[in-house]
Every structure is written in C-alpha cells, then in structure tokens.
Simulated scan of single mutants.
Amino acid sequence: MFFDSLKSRFVLALGACVITASAAAAEFPTRDIRLIVPWPAGGGADAISRKISNIAEQELPKSIYVENIAGAVTATGLIQMTSARPDGQTVGVLTYDSVITLPRGQMVPGYSLDNMALIARITSEADAIVVSKHTGIETFEELIERAKENPGEVRLGVAPKGSGPYLSAMQLEKLLDVDFNVITYAGSSSAEAEALLSGELDAAISSLGDFSGIIESGDAKGVIELSSVQNKTYTDVPTIKSKGHDLQTGSFIILAAPANTPDDAVATLESSFKAAYDTEEFQTWLAQVGVTADWLGSDGVEAWIDELQAKTFSLMDELEL
C-alpha cells in the first residue's frame, strides 16, 4: 500500500512537471525580449535589427527591445548574450566579425560560437567602395588611377584588421597593383560615414546599405560593388565582375540565442522573425536601403557558417593575416 501510494505521488508529480514545462513553452515569451546589437546605434546592423524586430514583435505577446552593447569587435555584447539565461528571452545579432574575425584571431577569452543557438540569417550584403564628394572622383577607374598616381596617399577607410572590408582592401591592392593608405575604424560604419563627410577619408569600404544616407544626400557615391550580381537598388553602381575581376566579399545579419535555449523557444523566435522577414514592409524597406534579403533558417545556418569560415580562413592564410 505504501509503495502504491508513493508511486501515485511520483506519477502525479511527474505529470505536474510535464504540464508546467508545456505551459512555460506555450507562454513564451513571458517578458519583453532583449535583442543585443553588438555595434553602436546608427549603423547598418543596428538599423536592420531594429526594423525587423519592430515587425516581429507583432507576432508575439511581448515586445522586443534593442540594446546596443559595442566593444571588442562584437564580442562584448555577444558574450553578454551567451551569458544570459538560456530561455529565449535574450537574442544577439551576429555579423561578419562575429563569425570570422573573432574565431580566427581567438582574441577574446570566453567567446565562442559553440555558446550559441543559431536562429536564422536575415540578410547578406556585398562590400562596396564609396568615395567622398570632396575627391571629385566619379568612377572606379578614376579611383584606381588616382591611387596609382599617388601611392599610399588615397585614404581608404575600413573596419579593423581581419574584417571583411580590411580583407577586401588587401585583395584589391594585390589584384590591381595599387597602394592605398588604409585606415581602420573600430565600431560601426557610421564612423567611416562621418569621416567621408568631413574629408578625413577619400573612400571607404562597407555595404551600400551602410552608406545609404550619405549616398542619397549626394555627399558620397558608390563606385563599385564587390560582387558578381547587380544590386537591384543601386543600379548605377557596377559590379567588380563587370570590370573583369573576380572578388566577392561582404557581411550579413544572423540572429542567435544562448546555447541550450529550448527548441520550442528557438522555433517561436524563428517563426516570428520569418513572418516579419516575409512582410512587404520589411522587403520594401530593405530594397530602399540597398540590402539583399537572404533568409536561411536554423536548419541551415551552421553548415553555411562552416563553409564560409573554411573559405575565408584559407584566404587569410594566403594573405598571411
């Protein structure tokens, strides 16, 4: 009798746990979701993250709020994300540096993609060269001609060593036999945009979307996109493939949660952001800023990252970076 009573209590307790866990999953999220953007406010990654989260929260019972935590080439914010409770209430934004620069250099103790549950890739953006109106340069050919005539004098702004734009600059110098004065800027592309406006830089490398504001104002002009596919928004900016060169680099936006986040929570986040991604509002907005919509769900992101790392690390070995 004692054992029968004990067994009954155990079954009831187990059932209660299952019901409680199911209820918790069904109620997710239980509070506003924190979306950590590891770059300062004002850059392309920040703008995209804010736009899609504003739409995605319409699919959820709670809001999504963005918190900018910059530093250590995205590691500061993302380590805070991976250190959060793995309940789906904290999400982080990964860019090129999060996937390539940091793992390659192993520069920040405690940072690892293994500490993350990947949710989805939202966009991909080719790098491009944008010139300041102060230079009077109108075309890619004029930029290269000036660089050849003035070795080491054309000031080209890029993200820190090891970043995608930095790699692009190194490849361009080798490919075209030119010598730029390469100047690195920590933080988001907004710093480079300000330097282009002030005349501190002659040119800079990042996506056209990152520089959309100063391009639209006429303070800067895109002269080449490092891609083989013509940008549907900036149709006046030629691809480097059209100039007879094969060079493709760029960045992307990936969403991730802490490792061990429940599958149900990851699925809810993925479906909410996919619904936002599919809206006409988000697609139209991306086109307006010149960013390519490029969704890849949780079932394919990890394999894509593995392939990208293998290709990029091999290139870095060739350039001895």
Rank of each mutant, 00 (worst) to 15 (best):
S5R: 15
S8K: 13
C17Q: 12
I19Y: 07
A21P: 09
S22M: 15
A23T: 15
A26R: 13
A26S: 14
F28I: 08
T30L: 11
L35G: 05
I36E: 04
V37Q: 08
V37H: 02
P40L: 11
A41P: 01
G42W: 03
G44V: 01
D46G: 02
R50Q: 14
S53G: 00
S53P: 06
L60W: 03
P61Y: 08
K62M: 13
Y65K: 11
E67A: 00
N68H: 02
G71L: 05
G71T: 05
A72N: 14
T74P: 04
I79D: 02
Q80Y: 06
M81C: 12
M81H: 05
T82W: 02
R85S: 14
V91T: 09
V91Q: 11
V99K: 00
G105C: 12
Q106H: 13
S112T: 15
N115W: 05
A117I: 09
A117L: 03
A126I: 00
S132L: 07
K133Y: 10
T135S: 07
E138K: 15
T139H: 05
E142Y: 00
I144A: 05
E149T: 13
G157I: 02
A159T: 06
S163L: 09
S163R: 03
Y166L: 02
S168K: 10
L175M: 15
V178I: 10
D179I: 06
D179F: 06
S188V: 09
S190C: 11
D202V: 07
S206C: 12
S217T: 14
S217P: 04
A220T: 12
E225L: 10
N231T: 06
T233N: 01
T233P: 05
Y234D: 11
V237W: 03
V237G: 00
D246H: 12
Q248F: 11
G250R: 01
G250I: 10
I253F: 02
P258Y: 00
A259M: 12
D264S: 15
A267V: 12
K274H: 15
A276Q: 06
Y277F: 11
T279C: 03
E280D: 14
W285G: 07
A287T: 14
V291W: 07
T292M: 08
A293S: 04
D299C: 00
L308K: 12
A310T: 14
D317T: 15
E320F: 06
L321E: 11
